[in-house]
Structures are given as structure tokens and as C-alpha cells.
Amino acid sequence: MIKESSSPNSGSSGNSGNGTELKIVKNATCTFCGCVCDDIELHADDVRIHKAVKACVLGKAWFLNHTAERKYPDALIDGKEATVDEAIEAAAYHLYKADMPLVYGMSNTTCEAQKECVALADQLGGLLDSHTSL
């Protein structure tokens, strides 16, 4: 999923000091606020981002607080742990059964996921809304 850019002026590797290779992503994009700055340099190992050069205080917190750890269960159904497959089946069932389902949110996600959300609302015959309408 993650590719080091092959272009000579972006992407290099360093050492984090604890033996693991640090990956450097240049011109990364921060989606914390609407500015969507795309000049951030991220230094990361396999688990966390150590440095977010050029990011503001909010952006730094955003990048450094997310990790690749498995902190939460894959899925919950009625508060009990479940597999993603089971959760997807349950989600599809409840949305399909509804007479007037609502698809809402879409702020902190990618355009690719947003397109799937529009397709979902279209397929369901439901309501579709974003943060904007608040």
C-alpha cells in the first residue's frame, strides 16, 4: 500500500535510533483541517509517525496520535467483538431492511470512500447528508 516515491528528490530512509528503518514520506497531505496542507514530511516506523515536519500544532497531534497498533477490536456488534465479515453482513442487513435509512458524515474520510457512500445511499434509496448541513 505504501510506496516509496522513486523520484530522486523525494523519499529516503533514515534510522530511528532503535534499530528500525524510518520511512520518510515527502509532501504528505494533512486532512486535519480544511487547509489540507500538502507539504508535510512524515517520518514513520512500522507503528507510528515520529515526526511531521512543517505540520502545525494541530497537524502534528493528528499525525502523531494515530498509530498502526491494533488498539480496538476489528468490529463490534451490539457491543460484542465480531469479525469484519460478520459486521459487514449485519450492516448490510440492517440498512437493507430499513424503510428510510440515513447515510451521514463523510468528513474524515477519503473521496474514494465518499463516492462509495453516495452509491450506498443511491442503492438503498435512503437519505444522504454531510457535516455541512448542521
Binding site: 430499513a98 424503510d99 434509496g125
Partner: peptide, 10 residues
């Protein structure tokens, strides 16, 4: 009686 109404999407 048979006229169509829309209950949500139904």
C-alpha cells in the same frame, strides 16, 4: 384505496 403512497422508499 389502491393509489400509491411512499412510506420512506417503500
Amino acid at each position: 384505496r389502491a393509489l400509491r403512497v411512499y412510506h420512506g422508499k417503500r
